[in-house]
């Protein structure tokens, strides 16, 4: 599970205070206008931004002060998740061994997870030969292989068309949550949150005050969310 408790994150003059909890196997959407601090939270959880005060725990471990490589999380970016000169097998293999000395057992594990995301035939291709959706699925395959208890998605679907987006959401639903991974996903699209997220947290002007059940959030939006959704 992901547990953010009164975390204060400062980036220049911008301040974000966040409290949020996502149980294992559940997915939480973060909804809010751009510039409100959504990405800032994910970067702080992944260790790319320092936390001034408060705590971040993942799977019960206090990780607030750890460097990025020692945090049990995977952060997926909108793009550039893959190294352009490595084929897909080795890009995914980096999730097992950063040194890329892959054993036959490693290669079988890679092939399995590539099959799971529907890229079994593309193991020897380079990222440039793949579509945007395929590239994101390859990045997801790497995240699955890493077997970390938390997955952070920074609008990984923003650049995809509606069909590919649905495909990817179905994959997250089937493969990620099945493994008991807690997912935190930034989205601009309320329908994305409604279609997949158990929980939804609002991020408004540098504040995140906990997540609620998605149905409740949208059935009973506060004035801020209503204004953001354009239902005044």
């Amino acid at each position: 599970m992901i547990d953010v408790e009164n975390a204060l994150i400062e980036r220049g003059s911008f301040r974000l205070t966040a409290t949020l909890s996502v149980p294992a196997g559940k997915i939480c959407a973060i909804v809010g206008p751009s510039g409100s601090g959504k990405s800032t939270l994910l970067e702080a959880i992944a260790g790319f931004l320092p936390v001034t005060s408060g705590h971040i725990r993942v799977g019960g471990d206090q990780i607030t002060a750890r460097p990025p490589s020692e945090r049990p999380v995977t952060l997926l970016f909108q793009s550039n998740n893959l190294f352009p000169h490595l084929d897909i097998e080795r890009n995914v293999g980096l999730g097992l061994k950063p040194s890329l000395s892959l054993t036959p057992a490693d290669k079988r594990a890679i092939a399995d997870v590539l099959g799971e995301v529907g890229l079994a035939d593309l193991a020897t291709r380079r990222p440039a030969e793949l579509s945007g959706g395929q590239r994101q699925r390859a990045a997801l395959a790497r995240a699955l292989l890493r077997q970390q208890p938390a997955l952070l998605l920074d609008e990984p679907l923003a650049a995809l068309g509606p069909a590919l987006r649905d495909e990817m959401l179905a994959l997250i639903d089937a493969s990620v949550l099945k493994r008991g991974i807690a997912v935190l996903m930034i989205t601009h699209a309320p329908e994305e949150a409604r279609s997949i997220a158990h929980l939804t947290a609002l991020c408004m002007e540098g504040r995140i005050n906990g997540a609620r059940l998605t149905d409740q959030v949208f059935a009973n939006p506060g004035p801020e969310l209503a204004a953001y959704l354009g239902r005044g």
Binding site: A46, S69, V73, T74, L75, F77, N80
Partner: peptide, 14 residues
């Protein structure tokens, strides 16, 4: 792209 350093940092590539 700045993400490349972050992906590397996350995967512990040093």
């Amino acid at each position: 792209p700045p993400e490349r350093w972050r992906v590397a940092a996350q995967l512990g590539i040093e």
